[in-house]
């Protein structure tokens, strides 16, 4: 792995074309990545979690965290009414405080994209899960159709799931090709493309070695973001998993010049947790990633806790759930 970043991302990526040329090359490359020691990685994550973020730093971090939220509802019981309410909240998380920023995006199933779009317009992004979310168990053409539908409906971002079965069976090329195909399906007629987030479902991949490998695989295949989880499998996002992914995007940029975003999703419920993630982003990947363009939280209940803590800082007293909307 080179230690200085190529200046030209295209050239940087091209320099890796050899490792993605076939299954054997890809396997050799992924298995040649440095291992991850579980205990060491978890200890590092825990140590970062002891940072104490106070006063001005906390204010700044809370607003940033709000701006990074992908406000999410991914339920069978989702209705147009439900997602419209959520979309309204995404625009104005704290109606009583106009200084409160909007969230980054609303994340829904593909069939709800238009509904959200009708509320948020261009003020907040719309992200759609696709590719037979959450299991990813469908034929490729179904997954691609799922993706195209969402893009056509106006999705700004596509959150795809990888085929974990293929990955765990060692069929890396298949996973790679599928990401490449979905990325193509994200193309819009005008030549732009919906941002592609690739969900690993790290809770099913189990080991940090797998997380590092799949991160590199997805980045080489053209992911714009790498994302931990669907939220449907426990454990979902954890600090150490996110640590390993942040190390991957950091190393990838150094190697290729290409910056990739990271999105932990599922299980992040408190402002305190969110700030731990931001500390980790800051100290592992660096402040280039401390924007909603490069780091997101996939969450639903997190937002209200961020708002409560924000209110505590501005008013000096502890707030309660009754003062925040439940959508």
């Amino acid at each position: 792995m080179p230690t200085t970043a190529p200046t030209d991302p295209a050239a940087g990526l091209a320099s890796y074309s050899e490792v993605t040329k076939d299954e054997r090359a890809l396997r050799r490359f992924l298995h040649g990545l440095p291992g991850v020691d579980q205990v060491g990685a978890e200890a590092r994550a825990a140590a970062l979690g002891t940072r104490s973020i106070k006063t001005t730093a906390k204010e700044w971090a809370l607003d940033l965290a709000i701006r990074m939220v992908d406000l999410t509802t991914l339920e069978g019981q989702d209705t147009p009414g439900k997602v419209r309410a959520l979309a309204a909240k995404a625009l104005r998380p704290d109606p009583s405080d106009p200084s409160c920023p909007s969230v980054a995006a609303v994340c829904v199933y593909g069939d709800m994209v238009a509904e959200v779009k009708s509320v948020v317009g261009d003020a907040v992004n719309v992200a759609a899960v696709a590719t037979a979310f959450p299991s990813g168990r469908a034929a490729l053409d179904i997954k691609l159709a799922d993706t195209r539908d969402a893009v056509e409906a106006g999705a700004d971002e596509i959150d795809m799931v990888i085929d974990r079965g293929a990955f765990l069976a060692g069929r890396y090329q298949q996973v790679f090709d599928e990401i490449v195909a979905v990325k193509e399906a994200c193309q819009r007629p005008d030549g732009s493309h919906a941002h592609l987030k690739v969900i690993f479902e790290t809770g099913e991949l189990q080991t940090y070695d797998n997380v590092r490998r799949v991160s590199w695989l997805a980045m080489l295949a053209g992911a714009d973001f790498i994302k931990t989880s669907t939220g449907k499998v426990q454990p979902a996002a954890t600090l150490p998993v996110t640590l390993v992914m942040l190390e991957a995007v950091r190393d990838f940029r150094e190697a290729t010049g290409v910056q990739i975003g990271v999105k932990p999703a599922g299980g992040i419920r408190t402002a305190k947790d969110a700030i731990k993630y931001l500390v980790m982003v800051n100290e592992v990947a660096g402040d280039d990633w401390l924007t909603p363009d490069w780091f997101r939280f996939g969450a639903s209940t997190l937002l209200n806790d961020l708002l409560m803590q924000r209110t505590k800082l501005t008013t000096g007293r502890y707030s309660g759930p009754d003062y925040f909307t439940l959508d």
Binding site: S52, I53, K54, A57, W60, A61, L278, L290
Partner: peptide
């Protein structure tokens, strides 16, 4: 933007 930790004595 830089994340400056405020003093936390």
């Amino acid at each position: 933007m830089a994340f400056e930790y405020a003093p936390a004595p």
